[in-house]
Nucleic acid binder design. Structure first.
Length: 506
RNA sequence: GGGCCGCUAGCUCAACUGGCUAGAGCACUUGACUCUUAAUCAAUAGGUUCCGGGUUCGAGUCCCGGGCGGCCUACCA
């Protein structure tokens, strides 16, 4: 905040201009009443000594009407306010839960009691007093001193029905978090998942690095980038669509085991599983191959599931997803042939594959070769049927421009995708480290682009130059973190696991 | 992108095929109350019915355009 940002009418007037609206005008008056009573309505800090959970832990089971002699100091937001003539019950909430404040007119001087009486749901307050239970047995803090900590000028949503409109919840996430415990729980679980992922990689000897978001060329994936401009350089730039090419440069540089948990930006549609900015974990390990990476993925997913749920069985919607290793493994071709009545291979005439692809609803373009056709057929007929964690392996060379050719088989790469409930959760391969092959793959992509395909990989000369210094055999991995959070928090919409999802401004 | 649906008080929701001054609960304001648990009771107040046009004696409701969102669908993770 800079000192010239004076609040003006423009900033306050968002349909609920504070002084003009009766709901907020009343709270503004109370704010002034606090000030005129000689108190700062927004004081500096507060020495909270006990959380709601602390109080509950220390006095779990007390008889109604009990006194403890235990003096505590708590702070939180008022969530419920029940006022009698000479008694006030306030239910306050902190990040650990709720605790009741019990204020009796007989205990307090008149001005302080009136201050408590005039406090509103939504205000932050602190209080000190003895832990007691009321006659009805509710654990409470019998208020001896009381400090307004921050006035809530806007009313909270209905205390019973809460805030349910998904758009309002997404646009006003702060309100959602105040009133919906589930929203807070997801935010916390996301943090725990990312922390656990980081720990898993660190424990395996990976170091966490940061690579650029702003790039002159966006590669490492087949996706449309966001464009921006650097004024001083006079340069059009792109936001990254993957971290892959930079992380592999670090492998060339000898860092050997690196990972990055970072924001990725793709200029594509928004729906229940896609946000324009999302979080990807990528890792690269020198001297590993895709089998090593698959083994690591099994272990990491099982560990994270266990860490969150205490079990490798995770309930997702109506399914139980089992994360016990090993996961099922099947080649893309096997899965395609399981789903089709005929049997195909990469030797099948293109005309035949094209006919099958069109039959199953693929929009076929003239540039599609056998590999692309088989990959499209896979996505059309097989992918959505996979429920339990499955490594789909041996993707065609055509659709995997950064993956190594299979050591024994023609046409396919040493690649896998981890599919769960029809969606991709991880993608990895034995990295292509032959710079001449890599150049040829890039050129094939350029030909596809010239043929009209819009999602192709650009030629990155500096990346090729890095490979020319010699990249060791490397196993690489990408994990869609948001998707994993959705899976482990049982959410069907990505906006529920991203605190501030991309929305059109109103 | 295409199709379907939605938007009413701060929040959650009503308002029949177009028809009395657009209602209710919670929240707010005022009053009563020393044991509440979504406190209760009483009274008051609160509206650009998303926005802009149109049809009509009359529009929250019907028509046209726009905004934002949801669901389904296609593509990317």
């Amino acid at each position: 905040m800079t000192d010239h940002e004076e609040p003006d009418d423009e900033q306050l007037d968002d349909g609920l201009e504070l002084a003009a609206h009766p709901l907020t005008a009343a709270r503004l008056e109370k704010l002034e009443a606090v000030r005129s009573g000689g108190r700062d309505p927004y004081p500096v800090g507060f020495e909270r000594e006990h959380t709601a959970a602390d109080v509950r832990d220390r006095h779990g089971e007390l008889e109604p009407g009990a006194t403890t002699g235990d003096i505590v100091t708590v702070a939180g937001r008022i969530m419920l306010h029940r006022s009698f003539g000479k008694l006030v019950f306030l239910t306050i909430e902190d990040h650990t839960g709720r605790i009741q404040l019990f204020a009796s007119k007989g205990d307090l001087d008149e001005a302080l009691f009136e201050l408590i009486e005039a406090s509103d749901v939504g205000d932050w307050v602190g209080a000190t007093g003895e832990v007691i239970t009321t006659r009805k047995g509710e654990l409470s803090v019998r208020v001896e001193s009381f400090t307004p900590l921050a006035k809530g000028l806007r009313p909270l949503p209905d205390k019973w029905h809460g805030l349910s409109d998904i758009e309002t919840r997404s646009r006003n996430r702060y309100v959602d978090l105040i009133v919906n415990p589930e929203a807070r729980k997801i935010a916390v679980t996301r943090a725990v998942i990312i922390s656990e992922l980081r720990r898993q990689f660190e424990n395996r000897g990976f170091i966490e690095v940061e690579t650029p978001v702003l790039l002159a060329e966006a590669g490492g994936a087949l996706a449309k980038p966001f464009e921006t401009h650097h004024n001083a350089l006079g340069l059009d730039m792109y936001l990254r669509i993957a971290t892959e090419l930079h992380l592999k440069r670090l492998i060339v540089g000898g860092l050997e085991k690196v990972f990055e948990i970072g924001r990725i930006f793709r200029n594509e549609g928004i729906d229940s599983t896609h946000n324009p900015e999302f979080t990807m974990l990528e890792s690269y390990e020198a001297l590993a191959d895709y089998n090593d990476v698959m083994a690591m993925v099994e272990s990491v997913f099982a560990s994270v599931a266990e860490h969150i749920h205490g079990s490798t069985d995770v309930a997702y919607q109506d399914q139980i997803i089992g994360f016990d290793a090993p996961f099922r493994r099947a080649t893309m071709l096997e899965l395609v042939n399981d789903a089709l009545v005929e049997t195909v291979s990469y030797e099948t005439p293109v005309a035949e594959l094209r006919a099958i692809a069109e039959r199953v609803g693929v929009k076929v373009m003239g540039t599609f070769g056998p590999g692309k056709l088989i990959a499209e057929i896979f996505e059309a007929v097989a992918e959505s049927k996979i429920v339990q964690p499955t490594f789909v392996t041996e993707h065609p060379i055509e659709t995997s421009p950064l993956a190594r050719r299979h050591r024994d088989k023609d046409h396919v790469t040493e690649r896998f995708e981890l599919i769960i409930c029809g969606s991709e959760y991880a993608n990895g391969y034995s990295e292509l480290n032959d710079p001449l092959d890599q150049r040829g793959r890039f050129e094939a992509q350029a030909r596809a682009r010239a043929g009209g395909e819009d999602e192709t990989h650009p030629i990155d000369e500096d990346f090729l130059r890095a490979l020319e210094y010699g990249m060791p055999p490397t196993g690489g991995l990408g994990i869609g973190v948001d998707r994993l959070v959705m899976l482990l928090t049982d959410q069907t919409h990505i906006r529920e696991v991203i605190l501030f999802p991309t929305l059109r401004p109103i």
